[in-house]
Amino acid sequence: MDKHEGPDAGTIRLDDPWYDALAVDWGEGDSNGGEGGGGAAPPRPAGSSEIYLEVQRSAAFQEVRGRYRGFVVPATAAFLLWYVAYVVAATAAPGFMARPVAGAVNVALLAGLGQFLSTFLLTWAYARHARLRRDRAALDLRWTVFEQERGHGRARNREVGR
């Protein structure tokens, strides 16, 4: 993280290679020199698509995607199964769902509250998994792309400057 001097001295921002560099060389206006506004996406720097394709094919990217799928697919399946089981039980076994547990609290109420609790637990588990297993590798990939784009831009500038 970087601390900044000046009027924003109290602010801290993540040292993200794309924080300021995302729009560099992406054209501030249209190709005629005027301001854009036609709704089209700004042009990418030449050669950037090759860099992204190379990163997508890399083992590091495939590992990050594999870790993502390894958590999301089973978690989504388990959550949907739990939700469908709740709905099916509520419609197919109303006697069971109406069974009192403690006072006015019945099985249906506990299962419904369990739906909310499982949503929060799943959100926490996803955030924890992302922080521990994917964020560092994804940031490393981001730095790699940033460095490749910067190096590619320097080479292009040397060719144009000849």
Score class of each variant (00 low, 15 high):
Ile51Pro: 01
Ser58Glu: 02
Thr91Gly: 05
Asp16Val: 05
Pro17Ser: 02
Gly29Lys: 00
Ser49Cys: 07
Ala78Trp: 10
Arg150Leu: 12
Gly161Ile: 10
Leu109Gly: 12
Ala90Leu: 12
Tyr68Phe: 11
Arg154His: 08
Trp124Ile: 13
Phe96Asn: 01
Ala98His: 03
Asp135Gln: 11
Leu117Phe: 12
Tyr52Asn: 15
Ala60Gln: 10
Asp16Gly: 04
Gln62Thr: 04
Val88Gln: 13
Val145Thr: 11
Pro100Leu: 03
Leu53Ser: 04
Glu28Phe: 07
Trp26Gln: 14
Asp2Ser: 14
Lys3Met: 06
Leu139Phe: 08
Ala93Leu: 13
Trp26Lys: 15
Ala98Ser: 08
Ala92Thr: 08
Gln148Gly: 00
Val105Tyr: 06
Asp25Val: 07
Gly39Met: 00
Arg65Phe: 12
Gly27Val: 02
Gly39Phe: 03
Val72Gly: 01
Asp16Ser: 08
Leu122Trp: 07
Val160Cys: 00
Asn157Glu: 14
Gly37Cys: 02
Ala85Asn: 11
Ser118Tyr: 14
Arg154Gly: 07
Arg156Cys: 07
Ala108Gly: 00
Ala130Phe: 15
Val73Trp: 14
Ala78Asn: 04
Arg142Met: 10
Pro94Asp: 08
Pro7Ile: 15
Pro100Tyr: 01
Gly39Pro: 00
Val55Gln: 09
Phe96Val: 09
Arg128Asn: 10
Phe116Met: 12
Ala90Lys: 13
Thr123Cys: 06
Phe116Arg: 05
Arg13Glu: 14
Gly114Asp: 10
Gly153Cys: 14
Glu5Lys: 12
Tyr86Cys: 08
Thr123Val: 07
